[in-house]
Amino acid sequence: MSKKILIAAALAVAVGLPAGAMATPEEDRIQFRNHFQDRFSEVPLEEYPNGVYAIDPVGRENWEAIEEFPPYEPFIDTGRDMWEKPFANGKTYADCFPDGPGIAHKYPHWDKDKGMVMTLPLALNNCREANSEEPLKYKKGPINDLLSYIAFESRGEVTNVVVPEDDPRALAAYEDGKKFYYTRRGQLNFSCAHCHVQNGGLVLRTETLSPSLGHTTHFPVYRSKWGTVGTLHRRFTGCNKQVRAKPFEAHGEEYRNLEYFLTYMSNGLELNGPGARK
């Protein structure tokens, strides 16, 4: 055995990682994408942002009809008013986000100063609090209006999550989100990946399971079942509950890191929010 290999092996043991478990985020992403392109070889990559309608032709017909009069449109209009209306102190969201409103592709990102993943809803609430406004609730309600407007204004931008190499905490957050995604949870003992990676395309009760690739491009989403627009973390909550696991706090560390990993997997895909789903 050469010295180099010995040192590498010793290092792997010291760090406690089995050989082969050290895939980089980029290696993960390529593997993830290849999995779907193998499984649905007839589906072009740019279709994945359309969720289940990339793989379910019957559902797709209904969806295309719905998209002619998009149910999320009123939310975009209300969100525009929110964006433009000054806070009590006279400032607006634009003072916090000078590049706004089309900023969805800049999130989630690693915030080095805070040492955490920054999500768009969290950044919006930070802006509100810095301007002495009450924070918005993260799952239901007005935050969805604001996010609908921002998503609409961000259409055509491309998902581009970065895990900076100069801060090991960023990689740790990514790895944490990845582990969450592949961990079995709840009484039903399912991981996210069991439904959306292994079984994408299968029908669960009345719903076809969407492939995970592209899962983050179109939020917030109007769901007919909800009768309104809801956030990504509301969706995470629902999916955790489906397997009878206790959901986590919206924009708490677990879901933030999950969003970081999951969005990274869709790097290169176009943003197309807000979306509409059954």
Binding site: Y182, S191, A193
Partner: peptide, 13 residues
């Protein structure tokens, strides 16, 4: 039982 991360076998590549 899942402390050690393991990539599930259904991701092949």
């Amino acid at each position: 039982a899942q402390q050690e991360f393991e990539m599930p076998a259904f991701i092949k590549h």
